[in-house]
Amino acid sequence: MATKAVCVLKGDGPVQGIINFEQKESNGPVKVWGSIKGLTEGLHGFHVHEFGDNTAGCTSAGPHFNPLSRKHGGPKDEERHVGDLGNVTADKDGVADVSIEDSVISLSGDHCIIGRTLVVHEKADDLGKGGNEESTKTGNAGSRLACGVIGIAQ
């Protein structure tokens, strides 16, 4: 089992970053940390998408990683996509320092995120509470600013 993974985020604009993942036990939580720069100040949706395909930019990554066919939600919700990591918060300089621990994603097994795409979005994720159909699919997080395929790390 891989215990570490990394993702280099890039987009068409100024947004870029490096996100690290570490899972010490196969059924334990995954620590997610790193930094994203070039964002507007505020909240930005942060999700693992189904495919590791960036051939047409971030759009070819498909929908959120959702092997259990659930509705979109927040990272602490029972009803959520596996890939729903909530929001990252950018400061006035456009930098989001990421520090998350998640017990639904994994670096092995059915919820493995390796080979899938991590995406940072234009807007805040409403965590499935926006009151419309799009909220239950995407959290109304808007366009995909930057993305990268999650790969095994040393």
Rank of each mutant, 00 (worst) to 15 (best):
L107Y: 03
C112Q: 15
K76V: 11
G94E: 11
S35M: 10
V104T: 11
T117V: 04
G42K: 08
F21A: 08
V120H: 00
G131C: 09
Q16H: 08
S69T: 07
H64Q: 03
C147R: 04
P75C: 09
G94S: 09
G42S: 06
F46T: 12
D12R: 12
W33S: 11
T55A: 06
T3E: 08
E101I: 10
N66P: 03
V30H: 04
A2Y: 07
G94D: 12
A56S: 08
L145Q: 13
I150H: 00
S99N: 12
V88H: 13
S103Q: 06
A56L: 11
K76R: 14
A5H: 04
H121L: 01
T55Q: 06
A90P: 07
T117A: 07
K10H: 14
G45C: 00
D91R: 05
N66M: 13
N87F: 00
H64R: 01
L145N: 11
G73N: 07
N87M: 09
I113P: 04
G130D: 10
K71G: 12
Q23A: 11
R144F: 02
V15L: 12
L43H: 14
T3N: 14
H111R: 12
C112R: 13
L43W: 08
V48T: 05
N132V: 11
G142C: 11
L145I: 13
G115N: 02
K37H: 12
K129W: 11
F21Y: 07
S35L: 14
A56M: 10
D93W: 11
S35F: 15
E101Y: 15
Q23P: 12
R116I: 00
D97A: 12
P67N: 05
L118C: 15
A96C: 05
K4P: 08
G11M: 08
A141W: 00
T40W: 08
T136N: 12
Q16P: 06
V82E: 08
G11K: 12
K10N: 13
G34D: 00
K10L: 14
H81F: 01
V98W: 09
D126V: 01
K76H: 12
W33Y: 08
G45P: 03
V15M: 09
E25Y: 04
K71N: 14
D91T: 12
D12C: 06
N20P: 00
S35I: 12
F21L: 07
I18P: 04
F65P: 02
I150M: 05
V95I: 06
R144Y: 02
E78F: 09
T40F: 07
G86S: 05
K24N: 01
N27T: 05
